[in-house]
Design a binder for these strands. Sequence first.
RNA 1: CGGGGCGUAGCGCAGCCCGGUAGCGCACACGGUUCGGGACCGUGGAGUCGGAGGUUCAAAUCCUCUCGCCCCGACCA
Length: 562
Amino acid sequence: MRFSQFFIPTLREAPAEAEAVSHIYMLRAGYVRQLAAGLYIYLPLAWRVMNRIMKIIREEMNAIGAQEISMPGLHPADIWQKTGRWDAIGDEMFRLKDRGDRDMCLGMTHEEIITWLASMEIRSYRALPQMWYQMQAKFRDEARPKSGILRTREFIMKDSYSFDRDEQGLAESYRKHAEAYHRIFKRCGLRFHQVESDPGMMGGAISHEFMAPSPAGEDTIVLCKQCGYSANTELARSIPAVGARCAMPLQGEELEEVHTPNRRTVTEVASFLKADASCFIKSLLLMDDDGPFLALVRGDQELHEKKLRKIVGNFRPAQKEEVKGILGVEAGFIGPHNNNLRKIADISLKEGTYIAGANREGYHVKGIRPQEHFQAEWDDIHVAREGDACAQCKALLTLEKVIEIGNIFQLGTKYSVPLKAVYLDENGKEQPIIMGSYGIGPARIAAAAVEQNHDKDGIIWPRSIAPFDIEIIPLDMGEKEIMETAEAIYRDLTYAGFEVIMDDRDERPGIKFKDADLIGIPYQIVIGKKGLKEGIVEFKTRMTKQTERLSPADAVKRVKEL
RNA sequence: CGGGGCGUAGCGCAGCCCGGUAGCGCACACGGUUCGGGACCGUGGAGUCGGAGGUUCAAAUCCUCUCGCCCCGACCA
């Protein structure tokens, strides 16, 4: 490929709207252009990267026996109504009507459609198992598209679905996918973790996410280096570190009310009483269908709403008047003792002596001992954070910002039952198909690769997904010998099967060097007048910036040995 | 959806407070000199100042509404 004929609109300065490193470089290096919020055009360089990623994904999916198909992006509403997601999903779904006034939507995912297919076509246990996948656009009206191609409203996803007779079959399909995903992300040159995740509205019991560490990531995971426990903070369990020593000795004290006028928040009372936040019980009055209840966490901790929701179902915070009506005081002074409300307390409170609201206007109470002064249901309802100990092995946990690049779900019968995707077993008995669903975002792989591999000059692509393998840089287009050498190397490498781009523009060397570093092809061969006089060209590795002085023939050989 | 910021030439920005008919750098075109890390000189093309309405003799500038984009949060198969 000739640079002069290839569309690479590089920018000297980054557009002001870009913030994430991957976004800035993809714009500057001429990979993408933005059409509207969360909608991107992939220019030739980016599309090459995408195709290489998708090729790797295809190879690994095919290798586990998955078969590629293609489903429509436009869906009739009734299938989504049957699974309940038409109503369960809110504004995130693009909805429209066709000319016949029928409700339609743009697919956010394809469980409904593929299950419909399976329901129409699969009759017998003899037809199972099956694994079908596609690479297809998904549409989600994101509340906040961001970070370039990391979070967009239309994006390509590799989504696959497994169909099995039973749970064991599902476990096998799930395992195959997990292994394929490991190979895919490894081949794409990414650092990543597989972590436990919250199935969310996908339903099902078990799910994992594949996470690429990056400051640009939107999720946070906890990792235990000792036992390998790893999970999204959406559900990660942990043992909170023991709080700092309280300033005043509380051990053995009897209950003692202290006047704390106008101090309502933990921070306010803590500084007023000169005690650490971890000496306090934070009491939150919440309302669910059965009425009010208290959620208790240590003063320095944060309530994890998702964890709590798993225990009690849906809830909401009580309003100001409700708090007064139920406990007789305003929210700043409520506490766990002297009332019969249901209480869910975080495990970190099980031991120790604490300060809490006194349920009396303007007062807190010291000396509260859980299980002695109040009873509660104990559970992990706090947000895990840096410094907490692993819930499995007690080792220190670390937290990491990550980009979600893939996920796998054991769905079970969540879709097959409502859509009547069933098969007849050996006994002629009808059984629901057991399903799994598995996604990968190729654009996120590309973005994560840039986030993880760049320097101040630009992108440094992993070899496997770079738009080209080699960039040849002849420094003087007017020198016959330079051009002949460049053409010969270009011909040899192309013939040997490499994807080669040659910067044949009549530009100054500085511009060619800058652009080459920006674009990030992993290897460069620089051909200049001085070197050629001595019969050498320069083979340069983009990542290390190291150059090797080689004869043109050796340079070709060097590339072939990569 | 809540909070904040920004829309002026392809990109980055100044001008706005204090109204007087739009400017700088880069990019682009042409000519010349250059040529190993984003050259220099000269000439030139390019802007409904996001849009609509209003105030005014006069609006990029003041007022009202509106659209778009970015960031933080909420949300997130």
